[in-house]
Amino acid sequence: MNQTPFIAVEGPIGVGKTSLSRALSAHYQFELFQEIVEENPFLGKFYDDIEEWSFQTEMFFLSHRYKQLEEMDKKYLSNQLPVISDYHIFKNKIFAQQTLSDKHFSKYMKIYDILTEGMPEPNVIIYLNASLETLLNRISQRGRQIEKSIDPAYLERLSSDYERFMQEFEAHHPDIPVLRFNGDEMDFVSNQQDLHTIFQTLEQTLKEGDPVK
Rank of each mutant, 00 (worst) to 15 (best):
40 N>G: 07
205 T>L: 01
20 L>C: 13
111 I>K: 01
37 V>E: 04
14 G>K: 09
94 I>P: 03
131 S>F: 04
156 E>V: 06
113 D>L: 14
167 Q>D: 09
199 F>Y: 11
171 A>S: 07
157 R>W: 00
192 Q>H: 08
175 D>F: 05
85 S>A: 14
1 M>Q: 03
206 L>M: 06
40 N>K: 13
43 L>Y: 13
13 I>W: 00
7 I>M: 03
72 M>K: 09
1 M>R: 03
49 D>V: 13
26 A>C: 12
9 V>T: 07
49 D>M: 13
207 K>D: 10
8 A>T: 01
25 S>W: 13
3 Q>H: 04
26 A>G: 06
79 N>A: 14
52 E>N: 09
3 Q>M: 08
40 N>D: 07
112 Y>A: 03
124 V>D: 01
143 G>Q: 11
57 T>K: 14
117 E>R: 14
85 S>R: 00
47 Y>I: 09
182 N>W: 03
51 E>H: 11
2 N>F: 06
19 S>M: 07
79 N>G: 04
63 S>A: 10
63 S>L: 15
172 H>A: 13
51 E>P: 06
79 N>V: 02
171 A>E: 05
77 L>F: 02
117 E>Y: 13
106 S>P: 02
62 L>W: 02
77 L>S: 02
108 Y>A: 00
113 D>C: 03
204 Q>R: 15
107 K>F: 09
29 Q>K: 15
114 I>N: 14
17 K>D: 08
99 T>R: 05
171 A>L: 07
177 P>K: 02
151 D>T: 13
71 E>P: 02
111 I>T: 12
143 G>R: 04
97 Q>T: 01
22 R>Q: 14
162 Y>A: 00
41 P>M: 14
203 E>Q: 15
88 H>K: 00
167 Q>W: 04
86 D>F: 02
152 P>D: 10
13 I>L: 06
144 R>Q: 13
179 L>F: 08
133 E>Q: 15
48 D>V: 05
131 S>G: 05
208 E>T: 14
36 I>P: 10
61 F>G: 01
80 Q>T: 04
17 K>N: 13
42 F>I: 07
15 V>I: 15
17 K>I: 06
76 Y>E: 00
14 G>T: 11
149 S>M: 06
125 I>F: 03
50 I>G: 03
6 F>Y: 08
139 I>H: 09
16 G>H: 07
110 K>Q: 08
127 Y>M: 12
142 R>L: 13
177 P>R: 03
83 V>Y: 01
114 I>E: 14
175 D>R: 08
103 K>Y: 10
144 R>V: 05
208 E>H: 11
26 A>N: 10
83 V>G: 01
79 N>Y: 07
181 F>E: 05
171 A>W: 01
176 I>V: 12
202 L>C: 01
126 I>S: 11
211 P>V: 10
163 E>I: 11
171 A>T: 06
57 T>H: 08
159 S>G: 14
28 Y>F: 10
212 V>E: 11
89 I>F: 07
164 R>F: 15
11 G>P: 10
59 M>P: 03
37 V>S: 01
33 F>C: 07
97 Q>S: 05
102 D>V: 06
173 H>L: 01
30 F>Q: 09
59 M>S: 10
5 P>I: 05
211 P>M: 06
85 S>V: 02
98 Q>T: 12
122 P>F: 00
84 I>W: 07
64 H>Y: 09
153 A>C: 05
1 M>Y: 03
136 L>A: 07
